[in-house]
Amino acid sequence: MTDNALHIVDLQKRYPTGVEALRGVSIDIKPGEFYGLLGPNGAGKSTLIHCTTGLAQPTGGAIEVFGNDAISDYAEARQAVGLAPQEINLDHFLTTEETLDFHGGYFGMPKRERRERTEELLETFSLTAKAGDRTRTLSGGMKRRLVLARAVMHRPRLLILDEPTAGVDVELRLELWHYVQKINQEGTTILLTTHYLEEAEQLCNKIAFIADGQIVAEGTSEVLAERFGVPNLEDAYLALVGRKELSRSHVEVVP
């Protein structure tokens, strides 16, 4: 048992198809940290997140969230986690308001608290005017905002963001990051996966590279760049995926 927000030891996941998505992943995320998990598609990022949130069942290893087992005796661990998944997975039968209210209910929030928190989040995410609209009628950006609002509805101590800004416009991306940075400063631990390296560089205290189901490097962006012998995080990532030739550091600026 540790004091870490997330403590993962030797996590393994083999799907029934035989695919080994995670091959002994171990990471520790301290309370209050903004932790980035970077890697190419299929590296195991989403599987790691699914194992942590109960959406996938690990075939080996251990996961603790704030010292609580997240695999077998998972109630306390799941109570502490909020998930904004990569795919928008809103319930088409619910309205915007109901989406938040029901989520709060699943996490045991009393009615009054749910009502107050729903109002607060609708306001924060500029969704008040859409409170009574069915989720399927919302625009893509609104759906993305609602997914994040739902993830924080029950005030999780660990917020997991799985590529939350994929396909969103610049304005919305900045809005989301401002909110996430704010709650991080207030004490919420963040685990972020993203393909936008500059975002990870700006936001995260610590970054891990995952490839082929294994953590291959971990540290600050400076440490990672040094580890790969390159000037920045992007080049370190390109070195990881074996595409150094794409480095923008090699591009000569024509006067």
Binding site: E76, R78, Q79, V81, L83, L90, Y106, F107
Partner: peptide
């Protein structure tokens, strides 16, 4: 089946519900 298709069932499955 609808919730599985939409992925919306993940909201219930990732909750502390037994």
């Amino acid at each position: 089946l609808q919730q599985k298709f939409q992925g919306a069932i993940q909201d219930q499955l990732s909750s502390p519900a037994s």
